[in-house]
Design a protein around this nucleic acid. Structure first.
Lengths: 403, 403
DNA sequence: CTATTTCGTCATGGCCGTTTACAAATTAGT
DNA sequence: ACTAATTTGTAAACGGCCATGACGAAATAG
């Protein structure tokens, strides 16, 4: 069972299908879920005014959603306003849950998020996965998934879907890892390995990180560029609240944008790619540090914090290279902001000055603002879990059909 | 009266408005128009099977569209198939028409296109507009518009909207030219200057060129990058059949993507922008030709054709620079193809080899194919006119409200 | 304690696509 | 030539869905 990839925007039921009354109802059910989900407890009348339907219509929709267990009645509101108080509605804290999973280079993580968006269960296992075959890693991950699903079950939650974030390129089928250099996986069909019976979607961790930023970030706009770096440098482009995936699903390969076209050769076939200047390996080398197995980012941040000038210079140079590549990207896409996530967030104090200098120096008028993600390294995992939750909010009727 | 900018995809009525039955009908009316418009004459039954509604429902929709004069009945089909022959329906060749206009550096052009997509009237005026004040230019353009509208009126067509293509950056309000370097216009509100009473939209010529490629090009995919160069180098990004405009409407500024970050200073504030290597001025200089007023592109093509080695080398170098900038763009967007339009189409024989060499050399796996637009310099004008036609197809009910 | 306001619900009505049935028009087969 | 089969377009009945309007319920304002 493979679920469609989530693009970040309520695609809802029947995107361009024949327009029938059932489709209309499905979309309106979705509108109610989104209104209640995003604006806290709301009365029927409040929902009606927000989504533009009448109170009577909303009543009917809410009845159905309560019958399905997706909404619950919290009881009468107690406001100081005149008139009969409404009955507060909230998204149910029981019922379907989104299971998110992350395959990192040195850890595995799984979590469960309920429809309200709150984290309800979690499991992490550390250990280096670089170079391990997919089979054992997935087996271990599956074990964690079962743990989390069991924990969630204890709280009245059942898994509505499983979304897996991987550090690599994923095909648009949403289950095949085409290339994950840091794991050394190639053309691996995770759909065949992960537990069946529950809708599965696999996506790039940068994409899930960007979705987390879109959905959970404070003040994040609908058009932005999300840059995250682990070993490679990945980016995700969000346009009008929707992920840009590209024809093959490979969009966002910022790491291989040419920065100095005559620079050193890169494994991708090009020369002078951004990764040659701002990739983890390159920065470690420039800083005169030996690559080690774990927590390289922490090491860099630590040294920079302590005033190690070689490390600081290396990070400044990386920021400059990032700034050059981002200048191109910003000129091409005109995003509202650029968000630095993943490892870049932790290193931002030393990257940002040179990065912003490059970006503002190369553009007329006001430069595109660069912000730092507040989600840290949790982004991809939370984004994955939330992507499942969003599919439920986007089409509650589909969930109801599954009992 | 300002019309919304067209993004290339049937946005249709009520994108995310409350879902009511009238909205449903509007969308279904649109579906019928699109089906008949894109797949030639069709019977009611054929339309029904294509859009997934029943014959009875389509009959009702078609009746209304015929009553509005947007569809017409061609009479019984005469096929060799068994069963009662259907009655062929076609989009009306009379009624609303899209008026497209183009403000070029050395010409003005206006045309009218009917709902079937066929060109019905046309007017062109040559003359250098560089440096002229907006007022007189718009006055001249208005004159041409009146000519074309009058000619269209003689054929039973009335203007449903006016779309103007300009060589510069247009704000997202769809009427203000923020910056048009080649005309030397800044922050000019064309809405105040152009004739009122007819919905107006103003957009970048590169955007309209890309839409023309999307709608009129043979075999053009839904995800591509359209590059066009006149004096500057503009690009338009089409994602999932929709134009990517960016937050301020400035997306697609390929000309200022850094190619050699330490290269010569550019007017934009940066260094080594693509325009410094592949812009018209730069290529003319590199070719050892003196800038003259008219038809610089024709001059280049002419010399290259005749074997002028300096010109050929200059074009090869421009192709290399384009290839570097496009490598970045392709890595970021993963488009299905890159389309060269505008002046680049005419020069493509000498640009393409070095451009493609750079692009394939810098990527692993199959490189993004580069194609040449078949629309030539007509793209922006046709795209503008068609954008108006599309708004009619996207929401025929809105047109019916205007009698 | 009454008037006012707001909430949720119910009955009614109108809109719209579906279903079902049927007449019309053509081809295939005898 | 005549019947059977097939397909088209239309009409009537049906069912689903939201809007409308009225009503009781529950709070505040005076």
């Amino acid at each position: 069972m493979t679920a469609p990839l989530h693009d970040g925007r309520p695609s809802g039921p029947g995107r361009s299908l024949p327009d029938t009354q059932q489709g209309m109802r499905r979309r309106n059910l979705s509108r109610v879920m989104h209104a209640v989900g995003s604006e806290g407890p709301l009365s029927r009348a409040a929902v009606a005014s927000r989504i533009g339907l009448t109170r009577a219509a909303v009543s009917s929709l809410v009845d159905e959603l309560i019958r399905w267990g997706l909404l619950e009645e919290l009881g009468p509101e107690r406001p100081g306003r005149v008139g009969r108080p409404g009955s507060a509605l909230a998204v149910s804290g029981r019922g379907p849950a989104g299971i998110g999973a992350e395959i990192g280079v040195d850890h595995l993580a799984v979590c469960a998020v309920d429809l309200r968006g709150t984290l309800r269960a979690r499991a992490v296992r550390h250990g280096v996965n670089r170079g391990r075959a997919p089979g054992p890693v997935i087996a271990e991950l599956t074990e964690l998934v079962h743990q989390v699903v069991a924990a969630a079950d204890g709280e009245g939650l059942w898994p509505a879907g499983l979304a897996v974030a991987v550090p690599g390129l994923v095909a648009r089928d949403g289950r095949t890892v085409v290339r994950a250099p840091n794991l050394d996986w190639h053309d691996t069909d995770l759909g065949a390995l992960l537990p069946g019976g529950i809708p599965l979607s696999v996506d790039n961790e940068a994409n899930f990180g960007a979705l987390a930023e879109l959905w959970l970030g404070t003040g994040t706009p609908h058009d932005f560029l999300h840059v995250s770096a682990e070993i490679g440098i990945g980016a995700a482009v969000v346009v009008d609240g929707q992920l840009l995936r590209g024809r093959r699903g490979f969009a966002g390969e910022l790491g291989h944008v040419p920065v100095h076209p005559d620079g050193p050769a890169c494994a991708c076939g090009g020369r002078g790619c951004l990764e040659q200047y701002a990739g983890e390996e390159a920065v470690l080398r420039a800083a005169g540090l030996e690559p080690r197995e774990e927590d390289r980012v922490g090491l860099l941040a630590d040294r920079a914090e302590k005033g190690d000038e070689a490390v600081r210079q290396a990070l400044r140079d990386a920021g400059t290279a990032l700034g050059i590549a981002l200048t191109g990207a910003v000129n091409l896409l005109d995003p509202e902001t650029v968000v630095l996530g993943g490892a870049l967030a932790a290193l931002s104090p030393w990257l940002l000055p040179s990065l912003e200098a490059e970006l503002t120096g190369r553009t007329t008028g006001p430069a595109c603002p660069v912000t730092v993600s507040g989600l840290g390294s949790e982004g991809p995992l939370l984004g994955a879990a939330h992507s499942v939750v969003r599919t439920v909010l986007d089409d509650p009727a589909a969930v109801a059909e599954r009992l």
